[in-house]
């Protein structure tokens, strides 16, 4: 484990504030729909595999890169690797997927992709992340599951 991180000194950004709790949140009668912020809150605290920082602090995930459609049951997330040749991109994408898989109701179709033009092998990564069978196979791998669990353990 002497491999040094791809991006040794990434830019760090401030954490956003917690979602404000409105009076309607406590109103039993009002139905809260899933929105972009809620999905963002689910993934913002995922740890980066290389640094003791969260994906939010590295601006790998941003609220503006999330789209939710409650009626069509679609969640679409794109993420931005800190550098274009980041070797961890697939792992980060996988962590986001696994996290959403566990945290969202099964009615949603979740798509996780690299933001356009931010990674050298964008297509390859997107293809891997879209392939259900490859994801399932990856989750059979004990070591991989361990790393993913460690990334999402504090969420």
């Amino acid at each position: 484990m002497t491999k040094t991180a791809d991006n040794v000194n990434p830019n760090v950004y401030d954490k956003g504030s917690e979602r404000e709790k409105l009076p309607t949140d406590y109103d039993e009668e009002v139905e809260d729909l899933f929105d972009e912020r809620e999905i963002f809150d689910l993934i913002r605290n995922i740890n980066d595999p290389e640094h003791p920082l969260t994906l939010e602090e590295l601006r790998v995930v941003e609220e503006s890169n999330i789209k939710v459609d409650n009626k069509a049951n679609i969640v679409y997330v794109t993420f931005t690797p800190t550098i274009p040749h980041c070797s961890m991109a697939t792992l980060i994408g996988l962590s986001i997927r696994v996290r959403l898989l566990r945290a969202l109701p099964s009615r949603f179709k979740v798509t996780v992709e690299v933001s356009e033009g931010t990674h050298v092998s964008e297509d390859a990564v997107n293809k891997q992340l879209a392939d259900k069978e490859r994801i399932a196979a990856a989750l059979e791998n004990k070591n991989l599951v361990q790393i993913i669990n460690q990334c999402i353990v504090t969420v």
Binding site: R102, A103, K142, N143, I147, N149
Partner: peptide, 12 residues
């Protein structure tokens, strides 16, 4: 639910 997923899983 995420916590229960980790019960006995690698990385817990």
């Amino acid at each position: 639910r995420s916590r229960w997923y980790l019960v006995g899983a690698p990385g817990e």
